[in-house]
């Protein structure tokens, strides 16, 4: 939810064109297209199994797309080797998967040292700074099992964000957490969005999806069925979308409309 007025030019950092993905005859993504402007945030919502994770995994090339193209900063990524691509399009998944043998600091420095080729002091310093930014100053020496779920997920976000990728993909980073830990992680994501990181955020938390994003994208059965500013998507007249939002906003009352329009 970076301020819409402040940006002069709208450089498209991520351009997904007609992306399709199928496994063994089953098509999982159908003709997915969207654009992300640099510094902006797209949230992706949709029912379970609609292909949200697959979309992110394709962008990070953990899965191969069957057709279509992904442009990063206007350049086709086909020719880019997977490690180079992945260091520019980061991914944090629901299972944060911190490296269990490394402390929080080393979890962050590993990527900085191996993919950014920083010296140890430089990597340490940058990692400290990032841990500080996600509110974990002082916990650098903790190993993953000595951290709460929310803290672990924040380390995972710092680990990916520290590489300063062009785009950071977040796949349901709060859904494996206890309810009371969700907010601290959402705040970190909001902070990233506000500080101008280009984000694609998959989440089941519709209010958060509306709050964090400039553009909301809804998927259904492998297709993008809604796209636009969150308040517009939430106000969609499409019956299936309405039912989806009704199901996911139960208990939120009218607060969501105000959240949506605040963006």
């Amino acid at each position: 939810m970076s301020d819409s007025s402040g940006h002069g030019s709208a450089e498209v950092v991520l351009d997904v064109r007609n992306m399709e993905m199928s496994v063994g005859g089953t098509t999982i993504l159908i003709d997915v297209s969207f654009q992300l402007e640099r510094g902006r945030t797209i949230s992706v919502v949709g029912p379970s199994g609609s292909g949200k994770s697959t979309l992110l995994r394709c962008l990070n090339r953990l899965e191969r797309i069957s057709s279509g193209s992904v442009l990063l900063g206007g350049v086709h990524t086909d020719a880019l080797p997977a490690p180079a691509l992945r260091s520019r399009i980061g991914l944090v998944s629901q299972k944060f998967a911190l490296f269990g043998h490394l402390d929080a600091l080393a979890n962050v420095t590993l990527g900085l040292r191996r993919t950014r080729h920083l010296s140890k002091p430089a990597a340490d310093e940058q990692a400290r700074e990032w841990l500080n930014r996600v509110g974990l100053a002082g916990l650098e020496k903790r190993r993953p099992h000595e951290l709460s779920g929310g803290q672990q997920q924040r380390v995972a976000i710092a680990r990916a964000a520290a590489l300063e990728p062009d785009v950071l993909l977040l796949d349901e980073v709060t859904s494996a957490l206890d309810p009371e830990l969700v907010e601290e992680v959402e705040n970190v994501v909001l902070g990233l969005a506000r500080s101008g990181t280009s984000l694609v955020v998959v989440t089941h938390e519709i209010p958060f999806a509306a709050k964090v994003a400039d553009i909301m994208l809804m998927m259904e059965a492998g297709q993008v069925v809604e796209t636009g500013p969150p308040q517009d998507v939430l106000a969609s007249s499409r019956p299936r979308s309405q039912r989806f939002f009704a199901r996911h906003l139960r208990g939120w009352g009218d607060s969501i409309t105000s959240v949506g329009s605040a963006g």
Binding site: A84, R86, A97, G100, G111
Partner: peptide
Amino acid sequence: VGREQEEAGLSLGLGHRDVIARVVWPQ
């Protein structure tokens, strides 16, 4: 050690060998 660990390493841009040597083997 599990696929998640391997994918976490890969998605940081580490090469496959790096992931085996620095993420999977130590654990």
